[in-house]
C-alpha cells in the first residue's frame, strides 16, 4: 500500500472535480441551451458554457465557491487502506487547497475562525460504506453553499401520499427561485427517517444525469417530477425560462408507518464530481 500515491490521486481528483465538469452535466447544459426559447435564459446558459470552457482550458476552478469537500467511500473490509484513508483524505484536501487553489471554506460555527485549509471538526466529511473484498471506491462531491442552503427536510403526514410528495418537491424547488444557481439537479430521498432521507437525497445527486432508478415506478416519478418542475418557468438562474432543473433523482428506504420523511437535496449546475478506484492490485484510477 502506498499512501503517498493515494494522496496524490486524491489531489488529482479534487482538481479534476473543481475544474472539469463531468460530460453528462456539460451535455445536459448544452441541450438545455439548444431548447431554451427565452433570450435571457439562453444568455445565462451561454455564460455558463463559456465559463466551463475557460475553467477547463485554464485548469482553474469553474466557480469561486469550491465547496465543502464531501467524500463517499465504499471500502472493502479487507482493504489495506482502511486505517489510513481518513487521514490521507484530510492531508489531500489541505494540499489541494493550496495547489489548485480551493477557497478556504471551513469555518468554526461559533467563532467564525477559518483554519485556511478546508479542514476542521468533521471536515472533510466522509460517508462510509463497508463492502466485501479489498477494493475501495471513493466519490468526491465538492458542494457549494448557495445550493446547499436550499436543501429541505419535510416530515410529511403519510396520508398525503405520492401526490403530497410531488406537490412538496415542486413547490420547494419553485420557492428556491434563482438562489441555488439553476438549472439544478434535484436529489429526493423518501423514507427511512429524517437523517436517512437527507442522506439518500445526497446520494441521489451523485448519479449521472440521464441515469434512471432501476425500479420502473421510481424512474417514472423522476421523469414526472422533472417535467413538473420545468413547467414552472423559473428558468436558468431564475431569470425565467424552461430549464429550471436538468435532472431529478429519487432514492427511497422503507419507513415507519407514522412517518413520511422527504429529503430534498439541491445541487447547482456546477454538479462537480470525481471518482477514485483502488483496485485489488493496488492500482489507482481517477475519473
Amino acid at each position: 500500500m502506498q499512501n503517498e500515491k493515494l494522496k496524490s490521486a486524491l489531489v488529482t481528483a479534487l482538481k479534476k472535480a473543481a475544474t472539469i465538469l463531468p460530460t453528462d452535466v456539460v451535455n445536459a447544459l448544452k441541450s438545455a441551451e439548444a431548447t431554451e426559447s427565452s433570450k435571457l435564459a439562453k444568455e445565462q446558459l451561454r455564460a455558463i458554457l463559456r465559463n466551463i470552457e475557460i475553467a477547463r482550458e485554464g485548469s482553474i476552478p469553474m466557480c469561486q465557491d469550491t465547496g465543502i469537500q464531501t467524500f463517499f467511500v465504499e471500502a472493502g473490509v479487507e482493504s489495506p487502506y482502511l486505517a489510513s484513508l481518513k487521514s490521507v483524505i484530510a492531508e489531500a484536501v489541505a494540499e489541494a487547497t493550496v495547489a489548485i487553489p480551493l477557497r478556504p471554506n471551513t469555518v468554526h460555527p461559533f467563532t467564525g475562525e477559518n483554519p485556511g485549509d478546508n479542514l476542521g471538526r468533521f471536515m472533510p466529511y466522509i460517508n462510509w460504506d463497508l463492502v466485501d473484498g479489498d477494493e475501495v471506491s471513493i466519490t468526491l462531491l465538492p458542494k457549494g453553499g448557495g445550493s446547499e442552503n436550499m436543501c429541505a427536510l419535510k416530515m410529511l403526514p403519510p396520508g398525503v401520499g405520492m401526490k403530497g410528495i410531488k406537490e412538496f418537491v415542486v413547490d420547494h424547488v419553485i420557492s428556491c427561485q434563482g438562489k441555488p444557481c439553476p438549472p439544478t439537479i434535484i436529489g429526493v430521498g423518501i423514507g427511512g427517517g429524517a437523517d436517512i432521507s437527507m442522506k439518500l437525497g445526497k446520494r441521489a445527486i451523485l448519479r449521472e444525469i440521464g441515469s434512471r432508478h432501476p425500479e420502473a415506478a421510481v424512474a417514472a416519478l423522476e421523469e414526472e417530477l422533472l417535467e413538473l418542475i420545468n413547467m414552472s418557468g423559473v428558468g436558468p438562474m431564475g431569470v425565467g425560462g424552461r430549464a429550471t432543473s436538468l435532472a431529478v433523482h429519487v432514492e427511497y428506504a422503507y419507513r415507519h408507518p407514522a412517518s413520511l420523511p422527504l429529503g430534498i437535496l439541491v445541487q447547482c449546475w456546477a454538479d462537480r464530481r470525481a471518482r477514485i478506484h483502488i483496485a485489488a492490485d493496488d492500482s489507482i484510477e481517477v475519473n
Partner: peptide, 25 residues
C-alpha cells in the same frame, strides 16, 4: 450568472487592493 467564476476572473485585469483581509479572511 451564478457560478461563472472563471468567466468573471477573465475580465478582471488586476487586484488594486485588498482591505481587512486579516480580520475577515
Amino acid at each position: 450568472t451564478g457560478g461563472a467564476g472563471a468567466l468573471a476572473a477573465k475580465a478582471i485585469e488586476r487586484i488594486e487592493e485588498v482591505l481587512w483581509l486579516d480580520e475577515l479572511g
